[in-house]
């Protein structure tokens, strides 16, 4: 697998990142070297092997559906870069 400049642009978009030209070139060569190594996995026979996304089997850990106070609004807003009227403030999103 080779990552070209087009794919780098697509990954930037998926990752919500904006790279400089220098960073793009570096990312492309680094990711290609890493993928060359990762492609070793292709030789491993994984036919009929169930993917393991978690080390142990899980059963759902349900709790009672009770109304309880959640974290205080002011506490949660404390770290917000910008806030207004008890809400997070962001640039205008609709015209």
């Amino acid at each position: 697998m080779k990552i070209d400049t087009e794919l780098i642009s697509y990954l930037e978009e998926l990752s919500r990142l904006k790279l400089s030209e220098d960073e793009k070139n570096k990312a492309q060569s680094d990711l290609n070297r890493i993928l060359d190594y990762i492609d070793k996995l292709a030789e491993l026979d994984t036919a009929d092997i169930e993917p393991l996304s978690h080390p142990f089997e899980f059963t759902n850990n349900f709790r009672e559906d009770e109304a309880k106070p959640s974290a205080d609004r002011e506490l949660i807003l404390k770290n917000a870069p910008e806030k207004k009227d008890g809400c997070f403030k962001v640039p205008k999103t609709v015209e």
Binding site: M1, I3, L7, I8, Y10, L11, E12, L14, S15, L17, A27, L31, I34, I38, L41, A42, L44, T46, I49, E50, P51, L52, S53
Partner: peptide, 25 residues
């Protein structure tokens, strides 16, 4: 970016799923 790549459509099976199968082994 590497994570976005292995999860993206078209590469998911060859990378992410394969990685999870290797994990099982």
């Amino acid at each position: 970016m590497l994570g976005s790549f292995v999860l993206s459509s078209g590469y998911y099976d060859a990378y992410y799923k394969k990685g999870l199968q290797a994990r099982a082994l």
